[in-house]
């Protein structure tokens, strides 16, 4: 599913050169839930941005579904993100003027699909996520956990191949965070979805199948998660 080979990413900040990723090689098979851990500045967000086709590597190759995405032109990247990827962010990033259901269908609307065709599907997803009756609420009328569930529904609606989550529980209390993680786990397993989740919370990381640890842009650990006894 994902093949990262000798990828480096170098940023220039004024006169300084920051090596955010340094020769990272990584393969993620289809259906795997990969947690990426590391302290701040370790390069985990950079890795996620590269996987999300939001950024291109300085060197190395990055294939998703066997396609080399770092060579795509901008429009194709947009289309790729829309069709193949789902995003979950720490701050939910829902549009404040749209209702819950409109937020869910937004990527598909951007793809030019019709509202009538999307809404029943989105409503079913929201119901499945325990948001029955909330579909016409705006973000400021929802709790943090509810907002994140709307965001998950948004990420899943287009049936992507890869779900990318950036600290999805970073802005939630531990109980709500636990519920959200469980939801992601169940929803993706049922769909055989590949997940890459970035977190610095060890507890959260253990919800995945495998944990990769980054430090100073390099992979310093790669272990399967032991099934809790």
């Amino acid at each position: 599913m994902i093949q990262v080979a000798n990828v480096s990413k170098v940023y220039r900040r004024g006169k300084n050169e920051v090596r955010a990723l340094d020769d990272v090689t990584l393969t993620v098979p289809r259906g795997q839930f990969l947690s990426v851990m590391g302290s701040s500045g370790s390069g985990k967000s950079t890795l996620l941005n590269l996987l999300g086709a939001l950024d291109v590597p300085t060197s190395g190759t990055l294939k998703i579904d066997g396609r080399e995405i770092s060579r795509f032109p901008d429009d194709e990247l947009s289309r790729f993100r829309r069709d193949r990827l789902g995003f979950i962010f720490q701050f939910f990033n829902l549009l404040p003027t749209l209702t819950a259901i409109e937020n869910v269908i937004l990527p598909e609307l951007l793809a030019g699909k019709s509202r009538d065709e999307l809404e029943p599907k989105a409503r079913a997803l929201l119901e499945q996520f325990g948001l029955t009756g909330r579909d016409t609420h705006r973000p400021d009328e929802l709790s943090g956990g509810q907002m994140q569930r709307v965001a998950i529904a948004r990420a899943l609606l287009s049936e992507p191949a890869l779900l990318l989550a950036d600290e999805p529980t970073g802005n939630l209390d531990s109980k709500t965070g636990g519920e959200v993680l469980r939801l992601i786990r169940e929803a993706t397993r049922a769909r055989n979805l590949t997940v890459v989740m970035v977190t610095h919370d060890a507890h959260a990381a253990e919800v995945g199948d495998r944990i990769v640890r980054l430090a100073d842009g390099r992979v310093v650990g790669d272990d399967p998660v032991r099934v809790a006894a």
Partner: peptide, 16 residues
């Protein structure tokens, strides 16, 4: 800016 970033992340192209 954040919203624009989000829209782009979920697949909006520059024209949109």
């Amino acid at each position: 800016t954040r919203e624009i970033g989000l829209l782009r992340a979920v697949g909006a192209d520059r024209r949109q």
